[in-house]
Computed example of a mutant assay.
Amino acid sequence: MFVLGVVAGGYAFWSAQNALVKPLTIPVDGLRMDVESGSNLSRILARLESQGVVRSARWVRVYARVKDQSSIHPGEYMIPAGSNAMDLVARLNSGDVTRYRVTIVEGWTFQQALSQIRNSKKIRSTDAGVSVQAAARALGIEGNPEGRIFPDTYIYRSGASDLDLLRQAFERMDSVLAQEWQQRAENLPYDDPYDALIMASIVEKETGVPWERDEIAGVFVRRLGRGMRLQTDPTVIYGLGANYDGNLRRADLRNATPYNTYVIGGMPPTPIALPGREAIHAALNPKDGNSLYFVAKGDGSHHFSSTLNEHNRAVREYQLKRRSDYRSSPVTDEDSE
């Protein structure tokens, strides 16, 4: 009997070691598996045993109970090749799920951001993502939600909904705007943070050169202070919506829309894009100076002028006699390759 007990004990030890220590039977590029909400470890192990991945679900369950790792988290998991059953249990217990990322770009519209989110991998679609209006209602925003979500890279798990990411970006914008509002300069022409957000969106669209943003903001703030119209093309383009074909015409500048700052006084009724933190900071901390005008130089930067005569000369130099190398955006590393 003693010998049989030793043999049985040895066999049990071998079986446990074989089930727990040896690598799982999975492809060389790993095993991708989904754990649904409400599932449990026993069910997952039974399925993996039937697929030949786990050698003995019973021994793995015993190990998990001893280690107090029987609880699991739902989500998508990538189990690397070479992992054993103990690695599997630890990963499921810690919730080490596969994570994805989606990037919302500064200067995009709300619609572009919504499309990017909806088309991202493993995103669960909801009614909130059907349209801009539906998203606004789901976020509790009255009217046009333009500019109300923060452009950034967001990390999410498989099964996250479009509304989850929209809400995260919405709350992030509120947080950033509140922080920057607390650090604003004095004597700004804004009644509230939303006014600053409108200005920031214009600054975002007017230049891709980061060091010019506060100077661009300074021009617009001074124009508002003197009762001058902003006269900025991006607001006109936004107001044209789907009618904009890439060519801004003189007739467009005379077309009376709520966003045509060549016609209306003050700022448009809403932001025209999603501004990043730098643009928000610039709108709330505009650069001091005398410039009231600026014109694109063709290399992505602008020439700033304090008088109309100087501005007109700059227009003739940079706009009316455009060089063959004229650019509306700065040169990037990719352009120089």
Rank of each mutant, 00 (worst) to 15 (best):
V130E: 04
K67R: 15
I149E: 03
Y238R: 04
Y238H: 08
A46T: 07
E215S: 13
P330A: 12
E215N: 12
S305H: 03
Y259E: 00
G246K: 11
S161D: 05
Q17M: 08
R91H: 07
P269R: 08
I272Y: 02
G289R: 08
E317L: 14
G227V: 09
T98A: 10
S120I: 13
N18S: 13
P151M: 11
R222D: 12
G10F: 08
R222V: 13
P330G: 08
F220G: 01
L139A: 10
E146M: 03
R322H: 10
D288G: 11
S125A: 08
R43Y: 15
G5A: 11
Y190I: 03
D335A: 06
L308D: 12
I149G: 05
P74S: 09
I79K: 00
A128Y: 12
E278K: 15
R184P: 04
E146T: 02
D252R: 00
N255V: 10
L240M: 13
R277E: 02
I117V: 09
A85W: 00
T126G: 05
M199Q: 04
G140P: 04
P210E: 08
F150E: 07
P80V: 10
R313Y: 14
L177E: 13
Y318K: 03
Q112H: 09
R316W: 12
V315I: 07
I198F: 00
N40M: 09
N187E: 13
G239C: 04
G241W: 15
V176W: 14
I202K: 00
L48C: 03
G246F: 13
S301E: 12
R277T: 01
G159T: 07
I216G: 07
Q182P: 03
V6M: 13
T153R: 02
L114D: 03
T232V: 02
Y194P: 02
R118I: 08
S125I: 13
I216P: 06
S56V: 09
A242Y: 11
T98Y: 00
S161I: 14
Y238P: 01
R55T: 07
S50R: 15
R316I: 08
N285R: 10
D68L: 14
